[in-house]
Computed example of a mutant assay.
Amino acid sequence: MRNVPLSQIDATPRAVLAIATDYPPDTLLPRHVHRRAQFLYGMSGLMEVLTDDGAWVIPPGSGVWIPPGKPHQVRMRGVSTRSLYIEPTALPRPGPLCEALRVQPLLHQLLLASAEVPALHDEAGRDGLLLGLLLHELGQAERLPLFAPMPTEPRLAALCQAFLAQPLIHARAEAWARQLNCSPRTFSRRFREQTGLSFGQWRQQACLMAAVTRLAAGEAVTAIALDLGYESPSAFSSLYRKVMGHTPSAARHGA
């Protein structure tokens, strides 16, 4: 199915519905919620996802898992998508949080083929088998560290929001602790309690998110590396490749 609103078919008695949608550049989908879980795959372009839990950046060739009942906002930057909408009784992934997921070649091809599956498909036939394999592969998909969880404590949340607007890889936990009038040890404990990550892990993920956005816009690798505070473009490229599985130059050219 292509460019069909979910509301028209949501009641269809099928565990999985697949919809392909093309979005104009810079489309904003305001905060909304689905009864079904959603896997949103960007065939092209960049997606920025915001929930009460934090912010995600989803580069081309990756997808975001959105649990059922999770309010979310998505900005589409030149994106053509494939979406799977999954009944809460058939979820392939546990947990209450969104996840950025790497889409491997088999999952990619299955998502391409899913656009031809009608809403009222034969669950025992080829279409049902295809969607069943999709669910299996989705359950096995690797999570990408492109999420910056937001703390609930207002002063700490304000520091995190300011950092997301201007990330620097060499930001020090000690400096944040001084702003919050607490010891570095207390700050580290509070930060992990609030976000589930160490300060260093959160800082790295926030910087990667900024890098992904700027690479998708075609900015130079050297400029991004230096703006984010890395010692050299090679140091930035090495870390980016280790985490993302490809070089920033490849990402910049749409690989």
Rank of each mutant, 00 (worst) to 15 (best):
I86P: 12
H253P: 00
S80W: 03
L156H: 11
H253S: 04
D122A: 07
K70S: 06
T222F: 00
V212A: 15
A217G: 07
E219F: 08
G245Q: 06
E174A: 12
N3A: 11
L135F: 01
L6Q: 11
P105T: 04
P149G: 04
P184E: 07
G200R: 14
P71K: 10
A235Q: 08
L120K: 05
T222Q: 08
L168K: 15
L50V: 11
V79F: 00
L208D: 07
T12K: 02
G125R: 11
I86V: 09
T51L: 01
I86R: 10
P71F: 00
M1S: 10
L120Q: 12
G128A: 04
G69K: 11
E137W: 13
L159Y: 09
R93Y: 02
L131A: 05
P248Q: 06
L40E: 03
R189A: 08
Y41W: 12
G69D: 07
I9Q: 05
A255M: 12
G42N: 06
V16H: 01
T51C: 10
V33W: 01
A162R: 15
G218C: 11
M209I: 02
V79G: 05
E116T: 15
T27C: 03
A119R: 09
I9Y: 06
P30S: 06
A177Y: 12
A162H: 12
E116K: 14
P96C: 01
E123W: 00
L138C: 00
R192D: 07
L120E: 14
Q8E: 13
F191A: 04
L228N: 14
G45D: 00
Q194F: 00
L197Y: 13
E231K: 13
Y230M: 12
